[in-house]
Design a binder for these strands. Sequence first.
DNA 1: AAATTCTCACCTAGGTGTGAAACT
DNA 2: AGTTTCACACCTAGGTGAGAATTT
Lengths: 213, 213
Amino acid sequence: MIITKAGRRMFPSVRVKVHNLDPDQQYSIAMDIMPVDSKRYRYVYHSSQWMVAGNTDHSCVPPRLCVHPDSPSSGQTWMRQVISFDRVKLTNNEMDDRGHIILKSMHKYRPRIHVIQHSPLETLVSLPADGVYTFSFCETQFTTVTAYQNQQINRTCFCTSEISPSHSSRGVLESYAWHSPFNLDFKSFAMELQGMFHFVIILAKMLINNSFH
Amino acid sequence: MIITKAGRRMFPSVRVKVHNLDPDQQYSIAMDIMPVDSKRYRYVYHSSQWMVAGNTDHSCVPPRLCVHPDSPSSGQTWMRQVISFDRVKLTNNEMDDRGHIILKSMHKYRPRIHVIQHSPLETLVSLPADGVYTFSFCETQFTTVTAYQNQQINRTCFCTSEISPSHSSRGVLESYAWHSPFNLDFKSFAMELQGMFHFVIILAKMLINNSFH
DNA sequence: AAATTCTCACCTAGGTGTGAAACT
DNA sequence: AGTTTCACACCTAGGTGAGAATTT
């Protein structure tokens, strides 16, 4: 996943569908992005994979919370729509003051979705102590870079596996795969968690990039 | 003001600043557009003015309410920002199903702003019976057309008068004047109404249209 | 050498005026 | 004749990848 100083849109964007909310309750829905480990990664071209290349410390950096602009809304409203975080931008600028999500390059991350039940009178800025339901999907893990490491990478298709809940697709969407120029049909899968909500993550449809023929 | 079948953005857009709200109360803010009279107008070029050219009946057409997308929000939130209705589109298509404001061509209209105090749990679709404070400014009156009536109209400056609360500027912004290619500085004025809020309408800055030199 | 930053040309979506054509 | 509709070229804002330049 490309990150830049000015902020780059996440692609594909995280989209989510929520079920089993209380239609009359008010909720906010937010996303943040958590480091998967404390390793630094390097892409080794001849073996076509990411290799560990040192350690880092994420401990002092609390992740930025990205509250969905429709928040707060009723459960009814949230359940009617696909909740898309397609405006979210990623940056490697630790001094960023435009509300973008700050990540380190060459690290592995995974987005989290929070459903927060709270009074509509209070404006949400950070995660409250309770009333928060958090979900995360290993299929959405990715590796950050500031630029493509070599010329060939765009032409390599990482998207051959099917995405389904029944078999592990971990790594399928990792790193550059999210920039693949190849056509990937709309995939969706459902998960039931904590016996209360279940989610459907719809992965953004990838179109053939115009710059490729 | 141009209106089209597909919907045309209102220009200049209505912008409003609200004061003296209860910071902790929840409000929605909405706009609609009311006919000024039941006359049909025709632009008479040689006398450079709009002349009455018949009657119409507005009675059966309830105006569409255009709720500001930030609604509902706390008084505090509303008072911090300039509330802009710049996404609003006008149409002459009475069958419009895209939520645009439906107007008749060749008629005079004036926008209204509604401040509605209500529970954030209910979603606003039409004006409730109470808790509504409505404001309107004669300076924002305009006449609708579907196309410019002649080639010269853009080159005629309608914007010579000062806009201020101290003297009547009715008509200054009427009809084609909202499409004037001439530079008009940011004007604002305040009004105190009902002893509870006061408003500042900020008229959109008009820039010299690129197609004129 | 590896990674980041910068500039730039390209693309796209959506809003705009124009003039020709069509409608009333 | 007056008014509306339509197709179209233009403009703009904002997002994008490529490659050069710079930093580490």
